[in-house]
């Protein structure tokens, strides 16, 4: 039997959840015995090469590219998991949601004291992904099957959830794994 295939992505996140994932330390050796990686920043594969069993999404959606990547994952992954606060709720980037987009851009690129007068310009280059009106959690865009809370979710939590999914057993979430204070 072939090994389950995993893919990961970081959308509007800080890569902290990926770093936390790497915090599984030596268990990474067990992991490569258990699974194969497809599209992921971990192996730098850019495009899906085959159907994927489990997709792990870090970050919510703040721009059109995030939405496209997320939809691309949904099309190619049997199970899609929102990993961490930003994917689940929008997280820190969603702090801009209470402020109109125009004000955010003006504050950042026109009025901020650190902007040199000659640099006052709202970027509009066509290579930059277009921003959304607000930051969306992933489940408002596509169907999400599971949610792993935390900022970031601990390595143990990610490990436990991932191995439970792979082995098809119920998730055992010890209190310490989902306690954040």
């Amino acid at each position: 039997m072939s090994k389950p295939v995993i893919a990961t992505a970081s959308l509007a996140g800080c890569f902290g959840c990926h770093m936390s994932f790497l915090d599984i330390d030596e268990r990474i050796l067990d992991l490569i015995e258990l699974v194969e990686f497809d599209k992921s920043p971990i192996d730098d594969i850019k495009k899906f090469s085959r159907p994927v069993d489990i997709g792990l999404i870090e970050g919510g959606c703040c721009n059109a590219e995030n939405v496209e990547v997320l939809r691309y994952f949904r099309e190619n992954c049997k199970i899609l998991v929102s990993v961490g606060e930003c994917a689940v709720m929008g997280g820190l980037p969603a702090m801009r949601n209470t402020i109109p987009l125009k004000e955010c851009l003006e504050e950042a690129y026109l009025n901020s004291p650190t902007v040199a007068p000659e640099d006052r310009l709202i970027p509009a280059d066509e290579d930059i992904p277009i921003l959304l009106d607000r930051v969306y959690p992933c489940h408002e865009i596509v169907k999400i099957d599971y949610f792993l809370p935390g900022c970031p979710p601990s390595a143990d939590l990610i490990w436990e959830a991932l191995t439970a999914l792979i082995q098809g057993r119920p998730l055992r979430l010890e209190y310490e794994l989902v306690k954040y204070d």
Binding site: V67, L132, D133, E140
Partner: peptide, 15 residues
Amino acid sequence: EFDLNRAVAEACAIT
């Protein structure tokens, strides 16, 4: 409920 074209409309207008 999400509509991508609607969600980018504001940014398009600004830029």
